[in-house]
Each structure stands twice: as structure tokens, then as C-alpha cells.
Design a protein around this nucleic acid. Structure first.
Lengths: 334, 334
DNA sequence: GCTCCGGCGCGAAACGTTACGCGCCCGCTC
DNA sequence: GAGCGGGCGCGTAACGTTTCGCGCCGGAGC
């Protein structure tokens, strides 16, 4: 591939001027035309590696996710890529999960070693370790859903998300609730539970009418927990699942039990974009606005790249409820 | 960040020796120890940009997909990343779709301009253009599901995939079939149809008992096409959908019509990992073995990076049928 | 004991670009 | 008409590595 030297040979201009042209700085019109012609003829493309080496900006950002297999993470990656591509930034993906997975900190260091200009990090729920040194190495960090992390932050309103679901159920007359709370060892899940508790206290719902069922955050876990709730006497009139897999499990158990929502029991799912479209009636569910999350994260990154020394920002994104038909209105008397 | 010069200052060794060490070449034990100690103390990490500039190998590969939003593409990316990470390769993702999307060729050139060592390309169904010049620039290309492309190829056995589904239906006594064939303008879909036709001819099924319903490759398209098939008199006894979205649409229409598989009609879906888990009974469906595809693609890339001049290879991956309970066995008399 | 050879260390020259500072020229002002 | 300043081009020195060829040293073979 031809380079600046070839252009110089053709135009007689200096490398500085050619460099200026390719960096969008002002160049005499005649020179600009000459460079353009030569570049076209020779097929010159500035060498990204040389640029990165000399200018210390690689125009690359990294995205570190727990696992690329998870729809939520992928959607985040997609959103970030789409937002950053027009700015000429490349996105390197790296999964901290999978078979031969190192821990998140190691993965972050390895990613930083590729000399990305910045990193997005979706931490694994389990490793609440520091990651601080990566930030200290001067790589700008944008964290997703990890409050207090050493960098910019995009937080999901976990409490608010579940709260809006619980409110929806209460407003429909349900007071005997079953909550698929997932794994209380995970911060996100604790937050969601706190959100539910907050609403219940606010509305003065006696806590004995609220059944909690924790389980691993898998569809299998959701199935078991759901089965547990369905077996209660009296049975809760409504179920709320705390994440995607739990929702999936709940739906399966429901179907296997021959029960249907909303006739036999009401159900509010979580974070299930496709699934709800094939449920009849459609599933009422809480949605994490992935596009917004990715968009805000990208914006934070761009701002920080422009101005590395600005103070860290935190953005909290509200969740939304998509109302389907899986929740039944109980009689005021019921 | 400290660099080789700092190590030299500490150890008195030459840059060449230090370079050798970091490239895994043999170095006198004493020197090795000295370098390791110094590197540890100083926190030296070889500068990836300088390496890439000088050695002309960036240790980066690109993955170009039509859209990161699609589960299949994402799964491929995930598989590739996982396979290549242990080899020290970074994966740059780039979507050719989305809002401000350039065409695939432009996207490929832009990706090549970041000086990746190789590129995986999942072409958009619509653009069957050349992409040849990218290959000619010397960037190794691995294509997925695009026969005849100028590079290594991983092909899905589209014909065989649908064929196995059709055979399954025939074996269960269904002869009046409805096929959701999607968009015949798309090569993949034509292949799948050809696979179905092949089996039908082989088994000497009269073609008038096979209803085709084409539609856009969306859930909405699938819904409409499915509604069309359901409205036929007599109605087909079994439906086979040709891709994921069509399957989704078919399930929705089925549910809305108050019909159930397999009691009212049999159904074979396509490429639906999660969905089938919440169907009761589970959905019988054709699966594209994404992991295998990604694995083989990664292997082809590694082989080519090792040996750029070897002749292009093509690998065809068979599809599999996952048998659920959505297909009913008809009486031999039926 | 001499020669030959392989293993390794060394210095210097790239790789292709950007950053820096100087100097020229043109136009404006008093 | 002289002085001044802004706009731009130019040469040079990095950026941090790898590559190349040379040369030394030590061991093996005769």
C-alpha cells in the first residue's frame, strides 16, 4: 500500500503538509487538489498503526462483557458500535466469560494492552473487585451498572424497574404476590428486591402476603422457583420475575402446569424482547432500555475522549413497563 | 508506560535481546531472568502499536456482519472471539447495517483500513457484489454462507437443513405441507426451498399438495404468510418455517388463531434456541450449529494466517433437527 | 590444538506517521 | 512605506518496536 512518501514523490510537497491534509487541517487549495489526485491515483490510506504509534490515539475502544452469548450484552455492544462507528472508532469486543476465561481484571488488562483509547466494562455480577488499576493506567473507563466504579457510569434503575412492575400489580388489585428474586448474592438482584420492598412499604402491604423465591439466575432456577410459588396455599395471584432467565423459567413451568396467564395467574416478566411476542396474550414485562444504555455510554465515552480530565459522570436510566395482557385486574373485593 | 529502553537502562541488555525475549525466542537464562525482573518492576508491556507498525501484524481480526442485532450474527461473533482470544487475537466488530450504514464493500474497506490481519465476513443477503478487491489488498477473508466468495468459506448446508425437516414431516405421515419460504430474492432462502423440493421429488410427493407462502423475512411477514396457509381449504397438516423470524411469526399467528401444535397442526421451526423452551410441547426445529460454524471459521482463519498462500478451503456444515413435540404422527391411513 | 559451526548478543536501520518550531509571504494598519 | 501578524509550508526529530547482518564465544570433531 502506498504511503505519504509516494504522495510526496508525486506532488513535491512535504510530509508535514500531506499529514495536515489527512488530518483535516487547512492546506492551500492547490496543494489539497494535488494531494487528493495523488492519493486517489496511488490508493493511499493513512497507516493506522503508524498513526496510533505516533499520535498515541488508536481510534479503538474496547468493550468488555461477561459473556457475548447473553442477549443483553450483545445488544449493548451493538448499540455502542453503531454509535461510535460514525466517529471513526473501532470496537474491540472481549468476553471475560466462556471456557478459558480469565477474571475480569486480567481481561481488562489484556484489553488495555491492545492500547484502546477507552474501555466499556460490563462487570460480572460476581466479581466486585477493584479494576481500579486499569483506570489508573490512564485508560478511560465507562462502566455499565456498577455504581461507585472508578470511571463514568451508566446505571440501570434496578429499584425503579421492579418498583414499576410491583406498582402495576398493586394497581390491578393484586396483593398476594410471588417474586422470583433470583440470587440474593448478586447486587443487581438485591437492588431489585429493594425496589419491590420500597413500594410494598409505601403502599402498606403486609409483608406476609409477599412470597419470595430465590434461585440461581437460570431458566432452570426460574422453573423450580416458579413451581415452588405455584404450590403454595393459597397461591399468589400474581408473579413477578426479576430477570430474563427467571421469566423464561416461569413461562415454562406455567405452561407445563397447564396454567395460563392471566386467567389462572398474573405474570410480569423482565427484559424479554422477543419472547413476549409469541405469548398470547402478550407478556406484560419490564424492559431495560438497552439502546438508551448503549447510547448514553457511548456519549460518555466520546465526551471523555474529548476531555479526559472532566469529573466522572453517572447517568441513571429509568426502566419502563410494557403492558401486555398477562396481568388480570382483580375485583376491588378480590 | 515503561518500554524496552527502560529495561535496557536497568539491565544493560540490548533492545534486540529484549525484543527476542518478548517474542518468545531463546535468550540466555541469566538475561531472561534479568529482563523478567526488570519488566515486572517497571510494568513493561510491549507497545502493540509499535509492534504492529514494525512487524506488519496487528494481531487483530475484523468481523463484518450485516447487523449486530441479529442473534445469529452475534453468536458467530461470540464463537469467533472465544476461539481467537486464547491465540492473542483481538476481534473488531463492525456492522454493515444499522442506521447510517454504508454498503458492505465500503464497510469492508473501512475495516481493512484499520489494518486487521484478517476479516470474517457474513455478507448481507442482498448484496451479492464482489468484495473481491478487499481480498486482493491482501487481507485474508473468511466468508460465512456465501459460496464462491474470494476467500475461505464456511457454508451452511441450507438444502440439507430444510431437507431434514421435510423428511421428518414425511416420515410422520404428513403429505400436505405448508412451507413458509420467506423471500425468494435471497439466495439462502432459494437454497432452502431447493432442499425441500429435492426431498419431495425423491419421495414422489405430488407438488400440488405442497403450499408455498413467501413473505419478507420478518416476524410480521411470517405472521401473514402463516395466516394465509391456515386459511387454505383443505388446510395443510404441517408447517415448516424457513428461518427464525418466520418461525416466530408462525407461532404468533398460531396462538392468535387459538390453534395449538401438534394437536391442530404440526410445526417445524428453524433456528430458535430459546423460543422452543417455552413452547409446550417443545418445538421441533432445525438448528444451525452456530458454534461449529464459528469454530470452523476461526480455524480457517488461523490456518490462513499461518500460511497465507494455501489454497482456499470450503467447509460445509450440516444442520441438525431437534425433535420436540410439535409434530404429530398421522395415521398411515391419514 | 585448530577449525568449524551453531547459538546469541549487539548496533543500526527501518516501519509510516505526527509534533514542533522556524521562516516565508502576503495583506493590513498607521 | 515600514512594521506587524496570521496562515502555511518545510525539515527534523521523535513514537517503540522488529529485523538484519555481523561478530563473539564455546563446544565438538579430527
Amino acid at each position: 500500500m502506498a504511503n505519504y512518501h509516494d504522495i510526496r514523490r508525486l506532488t513535491g510537497l512535504s510530509l508535514s503538509t500531506i499529514s495536515k491534509y489527512f488530518n483535516g487541517r487547512t492546506v492551500l487549495p492547490a496543494n489539497r487538489a494535488a494531494i487528493e489526485a495523488a492519493a486517489e491515483q496511488l490508493g493511499v490510506r493513512p497507516n493506522a498503526n503508524a498513526r496510533a504509534l505516533r499520535s498515541r490515539r488508536s481510534q479503538r475502544v474496547g468493550v468488555l462483557v461477561p459473556s457475548l452469548g447473553v442477549g443483553f450484552h450483545m445488544a449493548i455492544v451493538a448499540g455502542i458500535e453503531e454509535a461510535l462507528r460514525p466517529r471513526g472508532l473501532s470496537v474491540i469486543v472481549r468476553s471475560a466469560g466462556g471456557e478459558h476465561a480469565p477474571d475480569t481484571t486480567t481481561a481488562a488488562e489484556e484489553l488495555a494492552a491492545t492500547l484502546v483509547d477507552g474501555m466499556f466494562v460490563i462487570p460480572r455480577s460476581i466479581d466486585r473487585g477493584p479494576l481500579a488499576q486499569v483506570g489508573a493506567q490512564g485508560v478511560p473507563l465507562v462502566f455499565i451498572d456498577r455504581p461507585g466504579a472508578p470511571g463514568d457510569n451508566v446505571l440501570l434503575d434496578n429499584r425503579g424497574a421492579v418498583a414499576v412492575g410491583v406498582r402495576h400489580l398493586l394497581d390491578h388489585g393484586h396483593t398476594h404476590l410471588g417474586l422470583l428474586t433470583g440470587d440474593p448474592g448478586i447486587w443487581t438482584m438485591r437492588e431489585r428486591l429493594a425496589g419491590a420492598r420500597h413500594v410494598l412499604e409505601q403502599r402498606e402491604i403486609p409483608s406476609r402476603t409477599v412470597e419470595l423465591a430465590d434461585s440461581p439466575l437460570t431458566a432452570a432456577g426460574g422453573r423450580q422457583a416458579m413451581a415452588h410459588l405455584l404450590a403454595l396455599h393459597p397461591r399468589p395471584t400474581a408473579i413477578l420475575a426479576f430477570n430474563y432467565h427467571l421469566t423464561l423459567g416461569a413461562l415454562t413451568t406455567l405452561a407445563e402446569s397447564g396454567l395460563r396467564a392471566p386467567d389462572d395467574i398474573s405474570l410480569v416478566g423482565f427484559d424479554t424482547d422477543d419472547i413476549d411476542t409469541i405469548c398470547t396474550p402478550r407478556l406484560t414485562h419490564i424492559i431495560q432500555p438497552v439502546d438508551q444504555i448503549a447510547g448514553h455510554a457511548a456519549r460518555l465515552m466520546l465526551a471523555r475522549l474529548d476531555n479526559p480530565d472532566q469529573p466522572h459522570q453517572t447517568i441513571t436510566i429509568p426502566a419502563a413497563l410494557t403492558v401486555g395482557g398477562s396481568v388480570r385486574r382483580l375485583n376491588a373485593a378480590g
